[in-house]
Amino acid sequence: MNVFRLAGDMTHLLSILLLLLKIYATKSCSGVSRKTQELYAIVFIFRYLDLFTDFISVYNTFMKVVFIASSLAIVWCMRFHPVVRRSYDRELDTFRYFFLVGASFALALIWHEKFSVQEVFWAFSIYLEAVAILPQLVLLQRSGNVDNLTGQYVFFLGAYRAFYILNWIYRYLTEPRFTRWIAGTSGVVQTALYADFFYYYFISWKNNSKLKLPA
């Protein structure tokens, strides 16, 4: 575990905590894409199937359980919480996300480390995670105004990806025969999707103004 990987995991965790805090404190999920949250729940469940077969570390197991539980809790709140569900921007969150699931699974059938159930699902989860933010970005762009917590949520989620890239570069330079073709390629694609958002986030931060995305 290097410092970049730890920073990546912590910003990832922080992003999820920020989202839970926003929903809990404001009893509102306005500005949050339920489709993105459902995709993340699928991502974590299919990637962490190895919880039952491989033990890596207490840290690893703990984080996996936290990611699965928190993503399911967010989806549950947005679907079933009597107050929270009323603020869901249903009419703005119309991204056709089954397309993303299908395309990710098809790609996983073609490109994987090994042709086994667990490995194909692992690759599927990597590809799906790379594009899972799209419904959220589309929702933010449609709603125009972004509240602070939601903006910070997306910012930290993007920071997590950027730190993982630094982590792979570091590992490539320090570990013999280190390669992560599937995760690395997907990670670069995923991080690139945030570029536009980052640009406007930094402008609003610099001007000390509310984050607004152009229509």
Partner: peptide, 10 residues
């Protein structure tokens, strides 16, 4: 196996 052991990241 080697392949699975590579998944040490989250």
């Amino acid at each position: 196996s080697d392949v699975v052991a590579e998944h040490d990241e989250l």
